[in-house]
Amino acid sequence: MKFDIAFIIDQLPYLMTGLKMTLLLSFASLVLSLLIGIAGAVIRILKVPILSPIIIGYVELIRNTPLLVQIFFLYFGLPFIGLKLSGTVTGIVALSLWGGAYAIENFRGGFKSVSKNLNEAGYSLGLNTYHVYRHIIIPIGFRVSFPSFSNTAMSVVKNSSLLAGIGVLELTFTALNSVAVSFKYIEMFLSLGVIYLLIVWVLSFLFALIERKLDFKRRSSKKAFFSFKGMANKTYGKAG
């Protein structure tokens, strides 16, 4: 067995096309799951009739079934009731639904932690529910729940690798393709692991930056902004 570095360098451009797809899929899914998360959390806290139980059921269903089965269900199961989606679209839908379910829980915790006094102050100033949420609860709650949301986000990026199972040309699938031609397992899978580690490290660095920026206690002092104490302890997402 010989480790072939030249092969990895040769295959890098091809892997990069997969990386681009992975990042694109993750970004689209993250934006969507952010929206689902905020909307779902508000619906659950306001206890909107009909919608709230639906959200509860949706969250429990997604959180207690494997993402891979959800992806297969959307890709192979849905066409038989007349809904045919392409691989990429299935990927974005599956990842957004998955990320959204976790994001709802993250944001619900954050929004709930906003002091009741602020809520009441808003109403007594004559704001209606929409404005209380738009200007008070969501901006403050978002800051509180950002760390847990960033964990979910990291998991979404890592879980995009499962889309290889339905043949979406993302990072893992390009690596599998290259292995299928060259049989150089070790080189490919090791570089795959390294690339994912790099993505996760860069992301956790970015999220830590955003966290610092959102943290309004620190925002006043510029010195604190540039110190990255505790950065090493940043977690890399929950699972998957």
Partner: peptide, 10 residues
């Protein structure tokens, strides 16, 4: 924790 489970399996 950083590598996707699928990649660890492979």
């Amino acid at each position: 924790r950083g590598i996707p489970t699928l990649v660890v399996l492979f």
